[in-house]
Design a protein around this nucleic acid. Sequence first.
DNA 1: TGGTATACCCACTAAAAAGTAAGTATCAAT
DNA 2: ATTGATACTTACTTTTTAGTGGGTATACCA
Lengths: 107, 107
Amino acid sequence: MEVIGGKWKSIILCHLRLKPMRTSELERAIPQISQKMLVQQLRELEAANIVDRHVYQEVPPRVDYRLTEYGHSLSGVLHDLCVWGEENIDLRREQGEEITLLHRDDL
Amino acid sequence: MEVIGGKWKSIILCHLRLKPMRTSELERAIPQISQKMLVQQLRELEAANIVDRHVYQEVPPRVDYRLTEYGHSLSGVLHDLCVWGEENIDLRREQGEEITLLHRDDL
DNA sequence: TGGTATACCCACTAAAAAGTAAGTATCAAT
DNA sequence: ATTGATACTTACTTTTTAGTGGGTATACCA
């Protein structure tokens, strides 16, 4: 939980699980996140060796982030959690709860 | 993540996954948690319909907590997360990191 | 020279989560 | 009347996490 906890990490990871993504792509994919939080969470995931920051030697600058091999070892858990979460949301929606979150449409 | 996030919920759930437990048992099983946090987290898990608070009509009072059926649907994910976490800890210990947490010995 | 594009970084503030220490309620047994 | 056991509450403080609004650096291109 220390590694994937917090408001944003699991969401970021769910995106990166599918393909490497650039900063700006992630920003678009997760519109609610601020630049600061995005960078900060990516740094922490990098420090935990879950994602790899890949810099292209180009101008204008280009960077993308991808799961490391170790990060991929989380993929299954993440997927299951995601599936559970979506069922969870469905259940709660059926019970009339209003849920407007970062799920489903983003993932 | 809203349901199982935070510092304590996943730990509590990992215990309850195995068997119903009383307040005092949980306190002993998770020595670092304060009474306040334990009760507070249990209340939140109850509100999310993940755990069920079972009161015995006895004196002195007796209460235990157990996963609801819905809570059990998390059991698999929780287990996988736990396994990943332990591998994670092993890896980091091999690399000389000092980790003193609530894991392994408690679970 | 100024504009564009990308990927940041920094200082500050606000909000949420967690921690601490003490108190409450019940009722039986002594 | 006091103690003991259990399961909480409450008030308060500290720490952590998240959000806001700005700024920086590089280098091409007109």
